[in-house]
Amino acid sequence: MSDKKNTVFLIVQDNEDARPIIEAVEQDNSAVNIQYQPGLVRMEAPGRLIVNRETVEEEIGREWDVQELHLVLISLAGNVDEDEDKFELSWH
């Protein structure tokens, strides 16, 4: 196996509800690359990408259920690991 890490991505709608999620991803994933395309925002990172509940809650100042992500989610790539604190994508 090479050291090259394949890209995982999370694509969300380009709207107000998604903004705190995008900002949380930006804070918690140093290698993330964020692309704005018509109607959508694509966040990609090498190997792994995480959305932390706590970071999103700090952004919006209220409790946030990780599954609220479904409301703005468009697409993703990678294996999903979800619990009440985080939503994580990775390739093995």
Partner: peptide, 30 residues
């Protein structure tokens, strides 16, 4: 189909299609 094409719908002013497209696609992720 659902990512570049729906983004294309947004690009062509079709807000109705882009909205159902992305709404469907959120299920599609699941």
């Amino acid at each position: 189909l659902f990512v570049p094409f729906m983004s294309g719908a947004a690009y062509n002013g079709d807000m109705a299609t882009v909205t159902f497209g992305f709404s469907a696609q959120s299920d599609e992720s699941r």
